[in-house]
Write a protein that binds this DNA or RNA. Structure first.
Lengths: 263, 263
DNA sequence: TAACACTGGTTCGAATATCGAACCACGAAG
DNA sequence: CTTCGTGGTTCGATATTCGAACCAGTGTTA
């Protein structure tokens, strides 16, 4: 595949802006990316000209512009999230009294795509767009359990390399995944976040490829093992519906990991 | 200001993806942008490689990737929207029973930055990220009324050119703007959207530059002129608070239109 | 059937936009 | 006053981009 060096560099620059580090000084950013500050400057200027990046007048640092909220919304509309998906999540949130999380698989990682928070004052509250490895947490494991074995392997190995506390031995973890797949749902407590528990079910496209998962998450003192079993039927009630919607809209996630796998 | 031709082209391509036209065929897009399909293809490939754009496997058309939802969220976190601003808007929504809209000025246009919907089944519901000229609707006019006269002029002229039904004569419109500025709020009915009414107050930074507006919007049969006057105190109650928050976070909008004005 | 008009994707040499060492101007710290 | 940091700019050598012309595939028309 032919690709543009310049655009590729420009996108690497964008990738440097994260929730953890949302603003960068010019030379600082150039060092981080191992690029000449001249080229970083020219690219940032171009972004600025087009309204994609703004330079904070007080600190001189660069930040992502509102344009990304606009484009983010184009994607959201395209995926029919506010129109079709959110109402369902809202109903589950009201029915269970806990927050509802839609997770998708993207490039061998799990990503919170949408969260509808419960009305309670103590509730699970996280920002969407957060990525993490697929071996952590119910919402992610339930996805991993339905991925093809070779990708599972790759991801588990990655976890072992990084000494993930969720993985004891490779064999025991594979047994766990098999169990999750057979059971069709999973419950965890204090895994991704301290004192937070979650029940998750997998979501598929019409060809039964895993797309993501739907979870109910809340404080572990309220969302106990027993409570999770009471919540499960409510989640399952909407499973087919969610599968149908996600299959209708174009869901890029599946393609991404397949491509990765081929290369 | 030195800028990169290639990156500039790449961003023009991104600009083509809107809520109205969220997916493009290669040659169709190239024609629209008046560019060679070769270069559009190379740039799209680069975007795809980096996860910024995905090609729909069924239609072969290109669409924005989930990456934009991620970056959009970085901006949202940076602006402290979910953390500081949304709770206030939610309180107003509960207090008034109607939807609450945060509008900002960006590049001489109004932009819905955040909407918190009311709980009623008939309510104002629109997608954020929508742009429109500043002479339409209460939320926009209340901003226009506080912009410097030369920018006002430019925008009004633009409206007259496009035969906007909101502008009768330039003089009468300027009188209206002066009235709005003096009054400190404004109410309109069926202007931006049919059968939708709104009350709006302006929002400023610490130097009293206009940043945007805060509005309550609902169906016109419920949100009448008299009802608006009852709602106004609730809005005003939070005005200082919103000004303070928006001044604290870096708000790029002001800078944008000042830059435009200089050029 | 063949001819046509589309689509997305690719090649390669000529043309040109990019790169980066070296350069400002400024400010803070020693 | 020197040093080191910041953001920003210049210009010629050179690596990258450009685009006419090219596939291969598909759906339409005659």
């Amino acid at each position: 595949m032919l690709s543009s060096k310049t655009v590729s560099k420009a996108l690497s620059i964008l990738d440097a802006f994260t929730a953890e580090k949302p603003s960068w000084g010019l030379r600082d950013l150039a060092r981080y990316l191992d690029m000449s500050h001249t080229i970083v400057h020219r690219i940032l200027s171009t972004f600025e000209e087009k309204g994609y990046i703004v330079q904070n007048t007080e600190t001189n640092k660069y930040e992502l512009g509102i344009k990304f909220m606009e484009l983010g919304n184009v994607v959201e509309e395209n995926l029919k999230i506010s129109e079709m998906i959110q109402p369902i999540m809202k109903r589950i949130a009201l029915g269970t009294g806990e927050s509802v999380v839609l997770t998708i698989v993207d490039n061998e990682e799990g990503l919170y795509l949408k969260i509808v928070e419960s009305e309670k004052s103590v509730r699970f509250s996280e920002s969407v767009g957060k990525r993490s490895p697929l071996y952590i947490g119910a919402s992610h494991k339930v996805i991993l359990a339905h991925l093809p074995p070779d990708i599972q392997n790759k991801i588990i190995d990655h976890g072992i390399e990084n000494k993930a506390r969720q993985i004891d031995t490779k064999e025991s973890f594979q047994v766990l995944l098999e169990f999750i797949k057979k059971q069709g749902w999973f419950y965890t407590s204090s895994e991704t976040f301290e004192e937070v528990a979650a029940v998750s079910i997998p979501l598929f496209d019409k060809k039964n490829n895993i797309l993501g998962s739907l979870s109910v998450a809340g404080p572990d003192y309220r969302l106990t093992d027993e409570q999770a079993k009471k919540i499960l039927p409510i989640l399952k009630e909407y499973q087919e519906n969610m599968n149908f919607i996600l299959s209708k809209v174009f869901f890029p996630s599946r393609r991404n990991y397949l491509m990765n796998n081929l290369s």
